[in-house]
Design a protein around this nucleic acid. Structure first.
Lengths: 130, 130
DNA sequence: CAGTTGTTTGACGCTAACGTAAAGCCATGA
DNA sequence: TCATGGCTTTACGTTAGCGTCAAACAACTG
């Protein structure tokens, strides 16, 4: 899964990642200040690796799902805890979060269905009795 | 669908709705100030009806999905526009929003799958080779 | 050597979405 | 009558999530 695949570079500057994901460097520093990522340093300069980049992807997905950085932080901890100790506690936390997500999934499906209904009505009105 | 079903009351105070949905009256007033709902008035006192209550439900669902009040406002407009005029424009807007929601749906399903994988690993570690 | 580019750390600014008094208007009940 | 409860508006406070300078350093370039 996480084979050290060749070529794909393993060193990114803060600007690299900002460009790649269309966010500001300020945002990335802010995520670090909140402990969501912890890039290495070369002197004072941040050096990001694949792991940090992967975390960033998870962070942005979390944001698209409407989660707060606080939530996302907890969420990332679940990934880390794979290698962690309190495994039962982990399973509980994961289950909690899964419940939330499935509630959200239900909300989402309802909303999508409603909008499709609206679209249908709108189209019917334009070209009735197709 | 929207038959004026008997009994279910049709008059709610601001406190009624706050209680029912577990939010503050302040929040409800705030939604009104942003134009998301517009209850009638009896003197100065707000009087909510089924329509307002239904809108509130949509608002709260939107919030659970992580949308801003601005987004939710646009979203509510799609429902209203059913009776509206620019029907083609409506269909476009609806399609835009549907795209967003489906992106979100994909994100959500990915996230759920990943968490289930983590849970599986965690459980395996507790009771291996069941 | 001067200038440009990219980085850093503050630090202040800003918007959204309310929370939290404060102060006043009614209606009801002891 | 007056105290209590629920409603109102006005307005300032608060947190999250960055945006936006500012000042300083480091490396490269002509």
């Amino acid at each position: 899964m996480t084979s050290p695949d060749a070529d794909s570079p393993d060193l990114y500057s803060i600007a690299d990642l900002a460009r790649e994901f269309g966010i500001s460097t300020r945002a990335i520093r802010f995520y670090e200040s909140k402990g969501l990522i912890s890039p290495e340093r070369l002197g004072a300069t941040r050096v990001f690796r694949r792991r940090d980049r992967a975390r960033l992807i998870l962070i942005l997905r979390g944001k698209r799902l409407g989660f707060s950085l606080r939530d996302i932080s907890d969420y990332l901890a679940l990934y880390d805890a794979d290698r962690g100790q309190q495994v039962n506690l982990l399973a509980e936390k994961v289950d909690e979060r899964l419940e939330l997500l499935e509630q959200q999934l239900a909300d989402l499906q309802t909303t999508i269905a409603e909008l499709q209904e609206i679209r249908k009505l709108a189209r019917d009105r334009v070209s009735p009795a197709s």
